[in-house]
Design a protein around this nucleic acid. Structure first.
Lengths: 353, 353
DNA sequence: CTACAGTTGGATAACGTTACATAGGAGGCG
DNA sequence: CGCCTCCTATGTAACGTTATCCAACTGTAG
């Protein structure tokens, strides 16, 4: 009873520790730890006493101290673009899975730069996360491979085949081809594709896969001479900028595959301002099926990737890896075309011939 | 030299610790720690040796172990809605400030529910974050107050006055009034406001302030009898739903203050589908000035809140609190009206009188 | 009544770092 | 030449957990 100066009293201010709980319950630290972890070898009377003290002191375990020895029960997500609404969908899918499995999720925001992303990933590792999910990382495969050796990891995006981590991605090549098939079946021949700035040496980004799918499908239809790559950036402004150049192109394309919804919005915006009729004069298709696209007056033809499901799958794969699986899984989800109002048979363009 | 069994060899696989670095450099652990922390009392020769070993072993400090004694140099953000693009803006503002000050940012995603948010906040505290930023939390003031006593905290949203934490918010009441003033000056009298579901007892949410501002301004213009509150939800679907009811209202309002851009998008979508002309038949205004709103054909009249700046201010306030300030700051940013194409003098509506 | 198995509770060494207290050595001054 | 001072480098006790090992106790069978 008459212990150290401070004594038994709940000297408030400081957070209660497992030691405080042990004193309060009049049992050993080890026993409290056992109860808290649900470890075997404790009587129900002991459980009750400890739980009462935990309640009384409103004790919460110190995650760092716990993490010093065992798992943190926390996974980290590297988010390469916090503004991308598709990525938000992914995260919602993850949250549900992890939440139901007692894992916590922490997001580290990065920018599009490889350097920023790498430092964010390192930080996540420094924080002893039990696993990592990388959303559309820009890092080189060999670098990712090295990270995957250190910590359970899942990459969202068209990477792989991988040795030390799992991947989940949509079949962007197929999705892109679906758009081309759709446009060609409507009668289009001259089709433009807006490329996202992509260095030639890094071939495993969504933009690269979509570009490949576009090129392949155009070739399959015998239209290799009718395709037009428009270099630019997948953003509202980038779309507007690209639209300007598309209008100036000669011969002018009758359809545009924007590569991404956000770019399509920019393109639409510019075309509307210029009095170009959609879809009569120019058909426009996006990619991602963002919520905004489904609404009037946009009604954008797009490709759905079911981001929610993709996030959930990534989460499940990560949990499996944390549990010990080491053979790599590479899940590819099949995208589907959503036809809406911005695509139709070429009208004015055909007449002008 | 002939130490323990494992000896000096870089037994790889495990992550290098400060002890490995000390052995490698042939100095004490304490010295390594000093160099790493930039503490005074180390010779430049020592610095060089240690840094060389750090490099050689590619050592990275263990954040948890560090956090056990001192600060974590990590701040946590409770994000109540990951889909809200305005919140993304806030985070971008924060990232810049924290990044430049050597702090890391981790985001914990929550849902709109108070319960979910509280558990996320608790978790952030369990992770020993040095400070917390809460984005539009739903918790009661007294609960927030209690958290603020435990850890440096900044709340973004119209809370306060507070005793133990800082707040940053836009003047939503004023912003809402700006919209009303604008509409009234154009000649509107009958104006609808889309309320976001808000329990009567929790008055300090943005939606409440915007509702108050609407009511106050209408009263100021002697239009208290002409206002129409439309209960609903601030989302695309919620906007569409509200638009339906607004069209059925009698007398039909000539203008709608949607409360938020996302709701305005839904309203516009439905009205366009129904063949209602914007702005001739009905004027629509949003709130938040989201990027999409500025583009044709939406061109939404809205209120700008400079989210980027708001996030940066929140970050700075938090750093001040972490540094020791305890007097509460309550920053209020002045919003500004952005007039675009969805508002004009009432046309058809006036003729129908 | 003793020996033994089975069960329950407790001491304690890690985990990787920081920061405090102190030892050792060089240099300056009387 | 010795003492004092400063400066650098080191040893080590925390921080709050977990998990292993061990002691004590209970009950049971011989």
């Amino acid at each position: 009873m008459l212990g150290v100066a401070a004594g038994e009293g709940d000297r408030s201010g400081r957070r209660a520790t497992i030691i405080d709980v042990a004193h309060h319950a009049g049992v050993s630290i080890a026993s409290v730890s056992k109860v808290l972890r649900g470890a075997p070898g404790v009587s129900s009377a002991m459980k009750e006493r400890v739980n009462a003290s935990v309640e009384a002191l409103s004790y919460r375990p110190h995650r760092l101290a716990r993490g010093m020895r065992g798992p943190m029960f926390t996974v980290g997500v590297m988010l390469s673009d916090i503004e991308n609404p598709f990525f938000s969908l992914l995260i919602q899918g993850m949250v549900e899975v992890f939440g139901s499995q007692g894992y916590e999720l922490q997001i580290a925001p990065a920018t599009a730069g490889e350097e920023s992303q790498n430092s964010v990933i390192d930080s996540l590792i420094d924080h002893q996360m039990d696993g990592l999910i990388l959303i559309a990382p820009r890092g080189r495969e060999e670098h990712l491979e090295r990270i995957g050796e250190q910590v359970p990891m899942v990459v969202i995006g068209p990477h792989g085949p991988s040795e030390h981590y799992d991947t989940v991605s949509g079949d962007d090549e197929l999705g892109s081809a679906l758009i081309v098939d759709h446009l060609v079946s409507l009668g289009h021949r001259r089709i433009a594709f807006l490329t996202n700035e992509h260095p030639a040496d890094r071939l495993n980004l969504p933009e690269s896969a979509r570009a490949r799918g576009f090129e392949e499908a155009m070739g399959r239809h015998g239209l290799s001479d009718d395709l037009l790559f428009v270099p630019g950036v997948w953003s509202l402004e980038g779309g507007r900028d690209a639209a300007r150049r598309i209008l100036e192109a000669s011969p002018r394309p009758t359809a545009v595959h924007a590569g991404a919804d956000v770019a399509a919005f920019g393109i639409l915006s510019y075309l509307w301002e210029e009095g170009v009729r959609i879809p009569e004069d120019v058909s426009v298709a996006g990619y991602d099926n963002s919520p905004m696209g489904s609404f009037t007056p946009i009604s954008l033809t797009s490709v759905d990737q079911s981001g929610h499901e993709m996030g959930a799958i990534a989460a499940k794969l990560l949990l499996e890896r944390i549990a010990g699986r080491s053979e790599p899984h590479n899940d590819v989800l099949t995208p589907r075309l959503i036809v809406r109002g911005t695509t139709s048979a070429p009208g004015a363009a055909i007449q002008s011939r």
